[in-house]
């Protein structure tokens, strides 16, 4: 579904991405984790078509990304700068749907349905600044859902909310991505999160970024904030990802399973 091949990007002489290749199958939730400043955001921006990479290829459904694809949505970390403060939640969600050729009524219905899915049906007429950070990020997710993308990109989506909200949002994302069968690329620096949410975890090296490892997550479909995090498999995988993020080399046993 998504094929990133040998992606290279430099800002001037400073190389940020150094031949990154990532594949994601239809409906898969892939987490990309790496140390801060390793070029994760540059990767996401290249996939979204916001910047043109220096080299390499990005294919979505076999189509090369040349400008911004219309079957893709992004949830940014900084919800306060991504939602428009001059519009209500419902209007924020409904606005992009004009591109889908829906009339006003159907845009409105779709927005309400999406807000309902993220548990904000009652807050449709509120403005972003009347909401907590977690609520704002849910609006942002609802906006992406309503848009019905085949590929959802999330850039540190839970980076700016408190721990409790973060867990709720993780479960929300797991639920809605499974429900819509969306292929999702989630970028995070949080090791725990990448293992808990992902079907697969891709670990990037320190800048310039390369793929250090591509680890499957064998934790089953349904996950639980308490129980899953206590599983041996979870603990082992988390330790492995942690070692890799800090620049360690892969442990053969884990790789064999792949």
């Amino acid at each position: 579904m998504l094929e990133i091949t040998d992606l290279v990007h430099s800002y001037g002489s400073h190389r940020v991405l150094d031949g990154v290749s990532i594949r994601a199958a239809e409906g898969e939730l892939v987490c990309v984790v790496g140390p801060s400043g390793c070029g994760k955001s540059t990767l996401l921006r290249s996939v979204a078509g916001l910047i043109r990479p220096t080299g390499g290829r990005v294919l979505i459904d076999g189509q090369p990304v040349e400008r911004i694809p219309d079957n893709l949505a992004v949830v940014f970390q900084d919800y306060s700068r991504s939602l428009y403060p001059w519009m209500t939640a419902a209007n924020n969600v409904a606005l992009p749907l004009r591109r889908r050729g829906l009339d006003r009524r159907r845009r409105r219905d779709a927005a309400m349905a999406a807000l309902d899915q993220v548990g904000l049906a009652d807050a449709a007429e509120k403005y972003p600044w009347e909401m907590s950070g977690g609520m704002q990020q849910r609006v942002s997710i609802a906006r992406a859902l309503a848009y019905r993308p085949s590929l959802l990109l999330m850039d540190e989506p839970f980076g700016s909310v408190d721990a409790q909200t973060r867990e709720d949002l993780e479960d929300l994302v797991l639920r809605v991505c499974a429900h819509h069968g969306m292929t999702t690329l989630l970028i995070t620096h949080d090791i725990d999160e990448s293992v808990y949410v992902g079907d697969r975890v891709i670990v990037l090296t320190r800048s310039p970024a390369r793929v250090a490892a591509d680890l499957p997550v064998d934790l089953g479909e349904s996950r639980d904030q308490i129980a899953t995090r206590q599983l041996d498999a979870f603990v082992r995988l988390r330790a492995e990802v942690g070692r890799l993020v800090r620049g360690g080399s892969p442990t053969p046993t884990v790789l064999e399973k792949h």
Partner: peptide, 16 residues
Amino acid sequence: RQHLETARIFGFSTAQ
């Protein structure tokens, strides 16, 4: 910048 990028991602027309 993020306001503008959001608009690009969701394919807003120039008028929008």
